[in-house]
Design a binder for these strands. Structure first.
Length: 293
DNA sequence: AATGAGCGA
């Protein structure tokens, strides 16, 4: 590579400084007012013009309004709260929640002596390893071996068998402690799992709720899972909301899924919400085809 | 226009 010595030496760094020192520090600071409830934002800046006179520049702009149609009154009210902490300098419309770095320790209630569980499980694994290599995959819910993990169990969304969790009197106590790790007076048992609690496992309830999965497409890119939940929950209890995110850009891919506990609710949501105008787009809401394994 | 992330005894 050759250097062109005939060209004037580049002094780009000096280009804007030909008329003397920078006196900007003498000017009042920039002010930002708003945006107000109409999305109007005003920026006031001061500058020196070419003649060296101080001038004031007011810029008025309209901030894109957030989609509020679907929000509850309370939610709108919350959005108007003054920001605090690390979010103080965040713009309206940018992310409204912050990730906390605070470490929170959660104490799990566990009866004394129930650590027998770990010893037992560890022992099982050792036995497996001794017998022939890989750790065996055993489903905790249905007990099937080598087929799926607990989270993939076809029955994972079904009510847990009550017996596993409820305290039983003396006789079977030790066995229970070993299998469930829940024993003793100090272990909390939620009312729904106490002995005599009504069991809601009628044949229809037994179906896994992945089936009641609704696909929502044509979402505006700033629709978040919380927004979808807000929109769909009016039809019945929602077990999961998911918005597809582009891993590269971190932006919404414009579609998502909503799972309902009850099929009928999902159906009503589809009927009501398909073609519904939402945040300036027309939603497409229909049954989702089950996810590939 | 478009059918989801990640984890593990």
């Amino acid at each position: 590579m050759t250097l062109d010595v005939s060209a004037p030496r580049m002094r780009w760094g000096e280009l804007e400084e030909d008329d003397g020192e920078d006196l900007d520090f003498l000017l009042p600071p920039k002010q930002v007012i708003g945006p107000d409830e109409n999305g109007i934002k005003r920026v006031i800046e001061y500058k020196f013009d070419d003649a060296g006179n101080k001038i004031k520049i007011t810029t008025t702009s309209r901030v894109r309004k957030l989609a509020k149609a679907h929000l509850s009154k309370r939610a709108i009210e919350r959005r108007n709260w003054p920001k605090f902490g690390d979010a103080v300098h965040e713009d309206v419309g940018s992310r409204l929640t912050m990730v906390s770095t605070e470490e929170i320790l959660i104490e799990r209630p566990r009866a004394p002596g129930s650590n027998q569980e770990e010893t037992k499980v560890a022992g099982d694994n050792l036995a497996q390893l001794g017998k022939g290599g890989a750790v065996l995959m055993v489903c905790r819910t249905c007990g099937k071996k080598g087929d799926h993990w607990t989270s993939r169990c076809p029955y994972k969304d079904l009510a847990q068998p009550t017996e596993t969790f409820v305290e039983k009197p003396a006789a079977s106590e030790t066995a229970l402690a070993a299998s469930a790790g829940a024993k003793g007076a100090s272990t909390y048992v939620p009312p729904s799992m106490r002995a005599g609690a009504e069991r809601t496992v009628g044949s229809d309830m037994r179906r896994r709720n992945e089936e009641n999965s609704v696909r929502v497409t044509n979402l505006s890119e700033d629709t978040r899972e919380a927004d979808l939940h807000e929109l769909f929950r009016t039809f019945g209890s929602v077990s999961r909301v998911y918005v597809a995110i582009d891993q590269k850009t971190g932006m919404s891919r414009g579609f998502g899924f909503v799972n309902f506990v009850n099929k009928e609710d999902a159906e009503r949501a589809i009927n009501k919400l398909n073609g519904y105008g939402y945040d300036n787009l027309i939603l497409r809401v229909e049954w989702a085809t089950p996810r590939a394994s």
